[in-house]
Amino acid sequence: MTKKRIIFTLVLLGVVFYMPWWAMVVVGLVGAFCFAPYYEVIALGALVDILYGAPTLSFKGALGFLVSIAIFFAGVYMKKIVR
């Protein structure tokens, strides 16, 4: 399970660098559901803001971070429902 998690996180990292932002949300949601609690999505959300945002933008350039926290808790909640 740990090996799958690491591989998935590397894939998500690749998505952050090379794919459109909506792909990051979709893959992040999948990861948050499969590997809940998926802490890595929060770190990668912050990375998105560092790579593409700036403090002068909306939400002080922390939109990715805020969305990743929502994805994290959505994953935890979805996992509880499925169980």
């Binding site: 609690p37 802490y39 929060i42 770190a43 912050a46 560092i50 002080k60 350039g61 922390a62 971070f65």
Partner: peptide, 19 residues
């Protein structure tokens, strides 16, 4: 761990010199 991760990320993003 979650609280530390969120706190550290928020600090890195919202405190301009750190960012």
């Amino acid at each position: 761990a979650l609280a530390v991760l969120i706190g550290a990320s928020a600090f890195a993003l919202l405190y301009t010199p750190a960012r």
